[in-house]
Design a protein around this nucleic acid. Sequence first.
DNA 1: CGGGGAGATGTGACCGGTCACACGAGCGGT
DNA 2: ACCGCTCGTGTGACCGGTCACATCTCCCCG
Lengths: 333, 333
Amino acid sequence: MKRAAPQIRDVAAAAGVSYQTVSRVLNNSPNVRPDTRQIVLDAMERLQYRPNRAARALGSGRAGAVTVVTANTTLYGYAGVLQGVEEAGRLLGLTVGVRVVESEADGDVRNAVEYVTDPSCGNVVVVAFDRAGSGVLRAMPDGVPTVAATEAGGLPGVARPMIFLDEREAAADATRHLLGLGHRTVHHVAIPSEVRDSARQSGWRQALERAGAEVPEVVPAGWDLASAHRAGRALARDPAVTAILCGNDDTALAVRRALHEAGRDVPGDVSIVGFDDVPGAAYWTPALTTVRMDFVALGRACVTALVDGAAPVRLDPPSLVVRESTAPPRPFP
Amino acid sequence: MKRAAPQIRDVAAAAGVSYQTVSRVLNNSPNVRPDTRQIVLDAMERLQYRPNRAARALGSGRAGAVTVVTANTTLYGYAGVLQGVEEAGRLLGLTVGVRVVESEADGDVRNAVEYVTDPSCGNVVVVAFDRAGSGVLRAMPDGVPTVAATEAGGLPGVARPMIFLDEREAAADATRHLLGLGHRTVHHVAIPSEVRDSARQSGWRQALERAGAEVPEVVPAGWDLASAHRAGRALARDPAVTAILCGNDDTALAVRRALHEAGRDVPGDVSIVGFDDVPGAAYWTPALTTVRMDFVALGRACVTALVDGAAPVRLDPPSLVVRESTAPPRPFP
DNA sequence: CGGGGAGATGTGACCGGTCACACGAGCGGT
DNA sequence: ACCGCTCGTGTGACCGGTCACATCTCCCCG
């Protein structure tokens, strides 16, 4: 009567070698004669042997794992990073874990950090697009190898590798695009940011200043559509508003609706631009002009940065995709 | 010179008890005197002790983990299930892993199954909304505790616990809603399905038959927006089409765009209904009438079903949310 | 007052791999 | 012919917990 799962010593017996030799084969040690290796490989196949990751992690000290810590798994940017990490991790033979930080509250952050401090979690990718994420990042003990996916520019005062998509130039491009269409200025609905002057915002502001256009006050919104909708309603009331740069595509959706409710057509009366280029953006009516952000590549880059001594990845900068939601302003009546 | 991370024997020494007692405290054994427990707890706190999950898994045989196998992490339904599993798993103190199956190809499926066969992956939730997922489900060895999140009705010929959202009635409701508005019939753009007659489709068909309305041919589409757009274009050409039930909200987005391109207004000329109720649906212009699907609850239910002897969860059936994309047909000229 | 049982605690082996080191064979250089 | 080196392989201890079992104490009851 045999044990359910065969283990390394069973394989060794079947192959007529020692368990250590089997271990060497598992770990691709160069010091195994090719025909010995083949015998062991055959035995593994015959016994349907599967190495036990927990035992390996325990014995070797390394975990062979990567864990994503994030405040959210469904929002476009967050989900994209997760997808990228999974993809890159899987290709490297790593186990991929996810851990959500419920909120920026002290207890939640501490729990997440404790969770991820376990050696079997392996290296950590923190999605620091918000306070919960950056809180975790700051509370992370030095011993845990960590990289952060952050907003453009990184987080001040955090001594960790940080990878980000720099959409500053694209934000400026978007602003110039609108100005070029004849808009006197461009308004901005901002999503939450961890830094004083986000890349989107500073690109926008600088483009405006360079063009000598008035810089309107930023309208803040949250991650939720309801707050974006309120922001949009506020702007819709002002007839001087003819162009709006929205913090992301979701924001743009809600702003667009608010404009519609106020009887203002897009792009006839008001032009709008989003950020992210969600898959649906091209199928909007009108199709949304937006900035394409490759969050999946960002996630992949985080994993690359985690594996020892890899060259820093160069991420393509986000770029403006012009579609139908931007047009020249209606001529002044 | 001390070891970096304290272990159970260090705590035992600090507390003046045996390591087994510390282990008992860790596992909430009832047979520890309260004051002894407190002493141990204090020592743990003092030493900043963190148990090693890999060692626990190895020693005890159970993994304390749950792994989600899925073909996708970003599509609304898939991401929702993942979120639900993570949430429920975290609350149970489980480690949550993700593993993407790239495709339904034999090799990809086998790799995913091998990955998840490792005891340290723990119990498995397979998202079987597509062929890749159902392929994994069928290839899964009996020894691995597995539940599947599937389409309504479950997968024929698979002897595994299956949990699903039953949107059949909601599909019928949606169809009756459109019929009630005065449409002569309702067309259907279907997303891929693993079963002959999906719940959406059969609810729709039956409502049509009961009402004595003609049952038009189903227009198939893929998960991608481009194929949904093509499906929409085909329907837009036919002036008899005045109401469309779309397989999901993304499909509805692309269909709506196709209608618009053909010069047909929504809901003026054509009414459309989606499935899912993505967060943005309420902010569409016009706001989308759709069926709310709680995928997060589905994910949670999968975890509940996995923990021993829990009562089967009762999931609220999806329900129709009427908004602005449905209206009476234009009176015949 | 002694026996029995339950509760609290300690000891050794074990989970399934890995690591460090020992060992023997084959080879080249002097 | 001897030494030393590298290569391939095997042995014992170990990773950090858990399990099974032994032990000891205390209390209740006949």
